[in-house]
Design a protein around this nucleic acid. Structure first.
Lengths: 339, 339
DNA sequence: TTGTACGCGTTATCAA
DNA sequence: TTGATAACGCGTACAA
């Protein structure tokens, strides 16, 4: 019995398929690309050969002639990556990747290190990529809005700059924040505070606005505001500042779950009970929401879906199909035990 | 004043650079690839032209001739992605991406959806990728170990199968677990329990082993073991089972921070205090470690570094350079307030 | 030290 | 309906 001549299996080419199937390369190409006018028996022969050889088209060769990379790039600003405790990023990527595997676009990631913006820029503009996805908390980083004219781009969340022309997918933060704040006021709470996010990010601004609307509607005061940076510790600090004011507080809406979790610490440290003394509501429904005791009542924010829709929009854009410029993600209330 | 003739800027080619610099394409190519023997003045002229045109080599064309994709793929098994609450994944990717931007490899991600294993396989074997990184909790998924002979691969963590031949980066889980368990015994605790991870994953096995060694060394019993699945809720459940045994417990080592955080809930619900009544130690130093009260004493696990080393190893492998088959990541103790 | 010429694997054009 | 053949942009023997 002979040895297999092992070693790295040579990568099959279109030419090899053609030979095996007894047709020309052109015909194989047509079959592979599902071109209509090919004699059925040839189609069969080619498919059989493709299968036998386990042939996969060479992306590089294809890109070269089609002048298209069939790839989209996900940009992760370095600033985001440092605040990585946040489950947001992973979920968005998840959604993006999952959708893209159903297309034949490849997803590649770059960390836009401040050190080499040049390098990133020319990579993007060098024809290596058909489109760009930007996930950043400081959404719409100036750096990238410049690329807007040159390359299809989709942002996660409404960019602060260039919002009029750019494509993005966003949650209706204001509406959702309003909804959960109302939950607080309607349950009879009279002194409803908020721990708002940074006011230089849309989610920070909008979630605060939603709270504000609910307060006005309920005829409650607007004084009980403090700001955090979406981190857990900042939530604790903000809650402490609120409690230090010495005025009654019987509920608080935090602009995300991490800050809500932080608020728990401050509240419990003063011997106050959740929700009996102070009701707490959050936003995002991330892993922190169930990590705390009592489990947090919050806004369910389908982040993976956000990623998926970003990718879907980008692909349409690349292929020149009609697409909404802004896509809304819908949220829902998750009632747990903190209100 | 004339209008700029805007519109999508044509992508500059090597040929255009050559023309502008007044040399042949071959010379430009040599300059771009830092080939030594080029007349200095030509080098200057070419560099100038490259800059003027903002020229970037076309990856596709380059791949085609070099028969190399200059790309590595990160595989995320779908099973991992469903348990996405875990900060582990994001950090690993972070580390990988950050390192790769310093090389000229591109990082692309695929979710290995169970639905299309074929597609993934032929993508990988089709010459579109020079190497593969696998990040999975059930490390060394059978699916991928099959590729071992055909493509350079690096795993996050020691694979359960194929561990003898594959390249991987891992934390010395056992040593670290031993270290933090000793912290418990040496502080005078006499009834030290563990909430171990699943015994079908190396981190689960090894962290438990480390605890066991510490117990034996201290002459303490080995009975106080319960298992979780690394999730927060499983931590609570396991701790409850331990407490329900009705025997004394004055310390517990959880195999990760999430389970430790879960244990907090169970402990507090019984009116016990941390660390006065029960000391708690975790593993990973992830965001949960500081999210809980009191802050968790744990093992600092530099996950981003793990990602970086994976990428570094893979690149060496691809380029045929010598590399250790297994790389160890070192940990350290983080003393907070739970012990 | 430089340039010419060929080939990488694929698709597109055109003639048959 | 098919098959030659010419690009696509680049690297690299080889010759000069």
């Amino acid at each position: 019995m002979m040895h297999d001549a092992r070693g790295p299996r040579p990568i099959p080419t279109l030419e090899m398929v053609a030979e095996l199937a007894g047709v020309s390369r052109a015909t194989v190409s047509r079959v592979v690309n599902e071109s209509p006018r090919v004699k059925p028996e040839h189609v069969q022969a080619v498919k059989k050969a493709v299968h036998a050889l386990d042939y996969t088209p060479n992306r590089a060769a294809r890109s070269l002639v089609k002048r298209r990379a069939n790839a989209v790039t996900l940009i992760v600003p370095e600033s985001t990556s440092k605040v990585f405790a946040d489950p947001f990023f992973a979920s968005v990527v998840q959604g993006i990747a999952r959708y893209l595997t159903t297309t034949d676009y490849t997803l590649n990631m770059v960390i836009s290190s401040e050190s080499t913006p040049e390098k990133t820029r020319s990579f993007l503009l060098g024809g290596n990529v058909d489109g760009v996805l930007v996930v950043s908390h400081h959404s719409g980083d100036r750096t990238w809005t410049q690329l807007l004219g040159s390359l299809p781009m989709v942002f996660a969340g409404r960019p602060l700059t260039g919002g009029e022309e750019s494509y993005y997918v966003e949650t209706d933060n204001e509406q959702a924040a309003y909804g959960i704040s109302r939950l607080l006021t309607e349950s009879g709470r009279k002194h409803v505070a908020t721990i708002a996010g940074p006011q230089d990010m849309p989610p920070g601004v909008d979630r605060r606005a939603g709270w504000l609307t609910a307060m006005r509607e309920a005829g409650l005061g607007e004084e009980l505001q403090e700001y955090g940076d979406f981190s857990l510790l900042s939530g604790t600090a903000a809650m402490n500042r609120l409690l230090d004011r010495g005025v009654p507080i019987d509920a608080v809406f935090a602009a995300n779950d991490q800050m809500a979790a932080g608020a728990y610490t401050a509240i419990k440290n003063r011997g106050l009970r959740i929700p009996q003394d102070i009701a707490v509501a959050g936003f995002d429904d991330d892993s922190f929401a169930t990590a705390v005791t009592p489990p947090l009542t919050t806004v369910h924010h389908p982040i993976e879906e956000l990623g998926e829709k970003m990718a879907r929009t980008l692909v349409k854009l690349i292929e020149g199909k009609a697409t909404e410029r802004v896509t809304q993600i819908s949220t829902s209330l998750v009632i747990r035990e903190s209100v």
